[in-house]
């Protein structure tokens, strides 16, 4: 949550006082407040709002970094909407990734959290170990490791051969499978939703389960009638955060395809396409337009989640 500054207006001051004096007095009175807010204000205007507005302006220009931006109106947006097969390919790849990785990751995280919730000896150690992939997940080293695991002579194929006698393909370099190796990588980084699920599970009063058990409800029934409904606020939170993260995913695809989004655009994440346009072909204006479209898509998804929340999220009021 961001804390917004509150500006106090001095109500005791007579209304007829000269305006300039009033403003100065108000500033003087609030100066210490602004001073303390300065790091945030400078960061917000200088590093967030300013660049965002410049990027909005650039999205209406052709800009190659070397020459001054050249105003082209909505041409970039028109091109994206009507005449860009790579945009369509990137959207397809990104949506498949979001739709597969977010639910699978949440299910997996919940399953692990429930296992931990039974009170395992040495829980804190296991929790730390299972959280580790999330800390490393965005890193270059893991993506490189993934590339090795799923290569034609990688560990995965070795295990397949030893266990089932199957000769596996080169998973990362085959357009039929490469995206799914990235989905698996994403699921493996289940640590942060798992920790949040675990905290949520701890909040559910145990007497509810006792009561349900006395009434003859089985484990499955208990899960669907008690655990899941009471956990919906946490599920909602995790779903929103993970969806946003999934849309913004970049590093794994960049490393595994070495920035190409290949083979045959099969790992061309939206952000990777944006990066290629900006830093591969120096079409900064076009890339800025792509970025704004991504912002709108994420905003729509988030808004939809919040609107739907009233129908399925139960707050324990």
């Amino acid at each position: 949550m961001t804390v917004h500054p509150t500006v106090w207006v001095d109500e005791a001051r007579p209304a007829a006082a000269p305006r300039r004096g009033a403003l100065r007095r108000m500033l003087a009175r609030n100066a210490p407040g602004y001073l303390f807010l300065a790091p945030w204000l400078i960061g917000f205007f200088g590093l967030t709002l300013g660049p965002a507005l410049v990027s909005l302006y650039l999205s209406f220009t052709n800009y190659d970094l070397l020459r001054a931006p050249d105003w082209v109106g909505a041409a970039n947006y028109v091109r994206i909407a009507t005449d860009d097969p790579k945009f369509a390919a990137a959207m397809r790849v990104t949506f498949i990734y979001v739709v597969l990785s977010v639910p699978l990751k949440l299910v997996f995280a919940l399953a692990v959290a429930m296992a931990f919730n039974r009170g395992i000896r040495g829980l804190t150690v296991y929790r730390a170990i299972f959280y580790l992939p999330s800390l490393l997940g965005g890193s270059v080293a893991i993506a490189v490791l993934w590339r090795q695991l799923f290569a034609s002579d990688g560990l995965v194929n070795m295990l397949l051969w030893k266990a089932f006698g199957i000769e596996g393909p080169s998973w990362v370099s085959n357009p039929d499978y490469s995206l799914y190796t990235l989905v698996v990588l994403s699921i493996w980084q289940f640590g942060s939703p798992m920790i949040i699920f675990l905290a949520g599970l701890r909040q559910i009063p145990t007497d509810m389960y006792e009561a349900a058990e006395i009434d003859g409800a089985g484990k499955a029934r208990q899960f669907f009638k008690i655990t899941l409904p009471l956990l919906t606020p946490v599920v909602f939170f995790n779903a929103v955060i993970q969806t946003i993260e999934a849309f913004k995913a970049f590093t794994p695809a960049f490393i595994i395809s070495e920035g190409t989004g290949g083979p045959i655009n099969s790992t061309l994440f939206y952000t990777l396409y944006l990066y290629q346009e900006a830093f591969g072909f120096f079409r900064m204006g076009y890339a800025a337009a792509l970025a704004w479209i991504l912002l709108v898509i994420i905003a729509l998804f988030t808004a939809f989640s919040f609107l739907s929340a009233r129908y399925w999220v139960h707050y324990d009021d």
């Binding site: 357009p175 190409t260 290949g262 655009n265 290629q276 072909f281």
Partner: peptide, 21 residues
């Protein structure tokens, strides 16, 4: 201008042919 992108397009189309697409 823009010729640099041809190398990328060539690699991708060659892959499409290579994978039988």
């Amino acid at each position: 201008p823009g010729a640099g992108e041809l190398a990328f397009a060539l690699k991708r189309v060659a892959e499409e042919v290579g994978f039988g697409r």
